[in-house]
Design a protein around this nucleic acid. Structure first.
Lengths: 225, 225
DNA sequence: CGTCCAGTTGACAGTATTCAATAGCGGTGG
DNA sequence: CCACCGCTATTGAATACTGTCAACTGGACG
């Protein structure tokens, strides 16, 4: 939990070479400053005042809730391009921690609100952001409520593969087994065993613990529905 | 699943005698028509075109997702005053069914969008609605991911008690055990056993299967955190 | 080369599910 | 009014899946 964050001025934001597409994310990014976080450092705490919203540039972030006795539920993982910390209320309802070394853009919430009030397009974009998060959360609800361990892991791997920049059949997981377990509502041992089992059935290969090759995507998809 | 819905013209909407509070819900309600649905009838199907949004006037509605093999996850129950069917996308991502006989106000989505585009206040209210739904869903995620059967049922009972119009320690559940099970990610038997156990430990009383008395709220709250 | 930590594997336990039978409740009709 | 029917809920017994506890492995790093 060594929070060693430093701030630097924002270089011209350019994630693509195309002439000014100005997506909502670009707009957000142009309003903030870049901050770096070490692995496992806390970006903000549960119940902390929600003064900023964040966009991931590199690395991964986990969004979590804790129960009194230490049980943890990871609501989602945020990868490059994802927005987090965006709240209606004045306080964060969960904490955010760096899964890996990561760079994020930090934008003052007040500035955003001010702009949104006379920029309907931005306001709509912010609403769309909330709506997208809701959709994702609702899908995850089905996973946690009704899927088996195998199905959860398969769903997770397919999701990560789809989100990965390569988009292919190879995924490099930025997070630990414990993180995956807390995301899927399982234990670290069950995640490990399930991955081993998927490897034995030739659905995946595990060249290393963090690298996953989806050998038989259709088998995984069969576990998804 | 006998869908016997009839439409009637909207009487002046008045849920309170106070002089025009004009909450977002009132605004919505004033734009639509009242429709009634029989118990277990479908209000809209998963993947159906999302042409309307709805506000519950009386009764209860369940919002569900289905898995290929019939497993069901109820995302939420909507009671009087709740809004449902509000989507960004053109299609519903879940189905809605009447838990009990119920009356709802049906509002054309297109009308709402049109109004929202030149009424920033309405736009903000709609965003707040989505945000509130997100908060609720995220809390439920923690329940499904990390809580035991006892804790899930206790959380559910406290939530229903808080939402019930009386607000007291007595709840009349509009939904069946199967509905509760599908909401909490459990089986009907586990729900039943857990309720019996809570009754044995004097945390609740069950005068009838649908009526619950919270005898020892602090015990229930202890199971909540 | 040894330490440390993450991950894997094994044996066992426990919670929740499954399958099955029984009980209770509400409505209908004789 | 009561018997019967259908449906919902409860209870029981056995099973299965996942969790718990513990030992071990393997890779990274100094």
């Amino acid at each position: 939990m060594t929070q060693k964050a430093y701030v630097q001025s924002l270089p011209p934001v350019q994630w693509s070479e195309e002439p000014a597409p100005r997506t909502p994310r670009d707009v957000l990014a142009s309003l903030g400053v870049v901050t770096s976080f070490d692995r496992n450092s806390e970006i903000f705490a549960e119940d902390a005042a929600a003064e900023h919203i964040f966009i991931v540039l590199t690395g991964a972030v986990r969004i979590c809730k804790l129960l009194g006795d230490g049980r943890r539920q990871i609501e989602t993982f945020c990868l490059a391009g994802d927005v987090f910390g965006w709240e209606t209320a004045a306080r964060h309802r969960f904490s955010a921690e760096a899964v890996s070394e990561c760079k994020v853009v930090r934008v003052k919430r007040a500035i955003l609100f001010a702009r949104a009030s006379d920029d309907p397009e931005l306001a709509h974009a912010l609403w769309a952001l909330t709506a997208a998060e809701l959709t994702r959360t609702q899908n995850h609800l089905l996973v946690l409520g009704r899927k088996t361990a195998q199905e959860r892991v398969a769903t997770f791997l397919l999701d990560m593969a789809q989100r990965s920049t390569t988009g292919g059949t190879e995924v490099t997981l930025p997070m630990s087994r414990q993180d995956i377990a807390d995301y899927l509502g399982l234990t670290i041992e069950t995640v490990s065993r399930t991955l081993t089992h998927l490897e034995e059935t030739a659905a995946i290969a595990l060249p290393s613990s963090r690298r996953v090759l989806l050998k038989d995507s259709s088998a995984l998809r069969g576990l998804n529905a």
